[in-house]
């Protein structure tokens, strides 16, 4: 069996994997909202900074 069959099937397989990833992404709604995630991404730092404070606060109120 020639190597070309193997190479071709690998290339098609890789393409199919990406294709499936695309379908899964569309299904999960990743393309429904293209703006909010771009903003949400920038919040991550502040959330980490705030965590110790929040625990302090809950102690106080309790």
């Amino acid at each position: 069996m020639s190597v070309i069959y193997i190479l071709l099937s690998i290339s098609i397989l890789v393409a199919i994997i990406f294709f499936i990833a695309f379908i899964v992404a569309v299904r999960s709604g990743q393309f429904d909202d293209s703006y909010t995630p771009s903003v949400r991404m920038l919040f991550e730092d502040e959330l980490v900074k705030e965590k110790p404070k929040t625990t302090n606060k809950t102690n106080k109120t309790n």
């Binding site: 098609i12 393409a15 569309v26 429904d32």
Partner: peptide
Amino acid sequence: INRALIYKLGVAGFGFGNIMF
């Protein structure tokens, strides 16, 4: 939500690219 067009576009794009190669 109707996402049929995105799927169709995805299928066509996938096939188009591979057939070109």
